[in-house]
Design a binder for these strands. Sequence first.
DNA 1: AAACGGTTATTCGTGTACGATTGAATTAAC
DNA 2: GTTAATTCAATCGTACACGAATAACCGTTT
Lengths: 148, 148
Amino acid sequence: MEQDILQLDNQLCFRLYSISRKMTKAYEPLLEKYHLTYPQYVTMLVVFEHEKIDFKELADRVNLKTATMTPIVQKLEQIGYVRREKNPEDNRKVFVTLTDEGKSLNTRITDVPIELAQRLQLTVDKYATLVDELDELDALLNNVLQQP
Amino acid sequence: MEQDILQLDNQLCFRLYSISRKMTKAYEPLLEKYHLTYPQYVTMLVVFEHEKIDFKELADRVNLKTATMTPIVQKLEQIGYVRREKNPEDNRKVFVTLTDEGKSLNTRITDVPIELAQRLQLTVDKYATLVDELDELDALLNNVLQQP
DNA sequence: AAACGGTTATTCGTGTACGATTGAATTAAC
DNA sequence: GTTAATTCAATCGTACACGAATAACCGTTT
């Protein structure tokens, strides 16, 4: 009886852990032609929304530590989608901006979420429900993570 | 209009990506006293269910490639929770079994999911709903991943 | 029995992911 | 106006995560 709570099949966390990786894997073939990984793709989505964004703010938005974001942005710069420039008003800070190549990507890459939605065959209704439920879970998790 | 589908806030995948990591982080302080990481914890949950399990079957059950599972099981062996032994009937295969220390862990570690549920404050109803919906999404994802 | 095709666990290379530390730069305190 | 505390991005060490390659092994076919 008591052991049931240790059954893998009963674990919400494992579903999230597993599904998250499957989702990343589902994006992989679609992102291939843009030479992007999923974390790099998500980072680009945030850069698209800003045109010029603080490196720190970018990391916060993607919920990654700067230690993780540093190599991601460096790779995106190497590919040619973004530029890193020092903030003249505060030499500790770094701006991230789109290159022309990055702006071009912005218009072209819309096919990725469209194609994935097509493949996933999730109804608009279920999609919305899941988003809402996950947002509630996210709020609860933020409470848990607040206190040590 | 068309750009809305690139908005991070509209992405189901990003919620899963982000929440999955937060969930792992929420487990961290609870697993600390057992010297386990979250992937190691999940692996132990499967070993608990079997007493003796094929290495390959273990990796499949946790949805990890053997290349990922190898160092995880090696670490668990080093800690002292499991033993790796060759299958005498097939020298390519490896069995994973619980040590006495591992069996002791099985009875003690039930406090982890209990304490997390306590902290999360998710109602039984919402928990069940989320599990069902995630299982549906999982099935759809399996279809997507089947075809290249 | 030698060769072949398939399976298995490991190794390797690349890319996250993060805590801790570092070094540079800004701000606050006195 | 120097010291102290804080902030920032990068670096380091550890731990996943996986594709590809590898080496050992198995069953089968010739």
